[in-house]
Amino acid sequence: NQESVVAAVLIPINTALTVGMMTTRVVSPTGIPAEDIPRLISMQVNQVVPMGTTLMPDMVKGYAP
C-alpha cells in the first residue's frame, strides 16, 4: 500500500508547505504520494487543510501529478 501525504497540523489557506506540516499515512482514497514531499515544500495550499486531512493534488497550487 502506498503512503499518501497527510496534514500533520492545521494548514491555513495560502500557506507555503514545510516538512513539519506534512506526515504520511496509508489512506483511502490515496492522495499525493509520500515521495512527492520534496516537491511540495514551498508550494501553497489553496484551501484550509485540517489536521489529518489527506492532501489531494487539487489542494496544492501548481502541483501536477
Rank of each mutant, 00 (worst) to 15 (best):
N1G: 14
N1W: 08
E3Y: 11
E3G: 15
S4T: 05
V5Y: 01
V6E: 04
V6M: 12
V6G: 02
V6P: 00
A7L: 02
V9T: 14
V9F: 14
V9D: 05
V9A: 12
L10C: 04
L10N: 09
I11R: 00
I11N: 01
I13M: 12
I13A: 09
I13K: 15
I13L: 13
N14H: 15
T15Y: 06
A16F: 12
L17E: 00
T18S: 06
T18E: 13
T18M: 04
T18Q: 14
T18A: 12
V19A: 15
V19S: 13
G20D: 14
G20K: 13
G20Y: 05
T23I: 08
T23C: 03
T23R: 10
T23H: 10
T23E: 07
T24Y: 08
R25P: 01
R25A: 12
R25L: 08
V26L: 12
V26G: 09
V26I: 15
V26Q: 14
V27W: 02
V27K: 07
V27A: 08
P29N: 05
P29G: 05
T30N: 14
T30R: 14
G31T: 02
G31D: 01
I32L: 05
I32Y: 03
P33C: 04
P33L: 05
P33M: 13
A34I: 07
E35H: 08
I37Y: 09
I37M: 10
P38K: 07
R39D: 04
R39Y: 12
L40T: 02
I41A: 11
S42G: 12
M43R: 10
Q44V: 12
V45A: 07
N46Y: 08
N46E: 09
Q47T: 09
V48A: 10
V48Y: 10
V49W: 01
V49H: 01
P50G: 07
P50S: 10
G52E: 14
G52L: 06
T53E: 10
T53I: 07
T53S: 08
T54A: 05
L55D: 00
L55R: 00
L55P: 00
M56V: 11
M56W: 05
P57W: 10
P57V: 10
D58H: 13
D58T: 15
D58G: 13
V60K: 01
K61N: 13
K61R: 11
G62S: 09
G62M: 06
G62H: 08
G62L: 11
Y63T: 03
P65I: 10
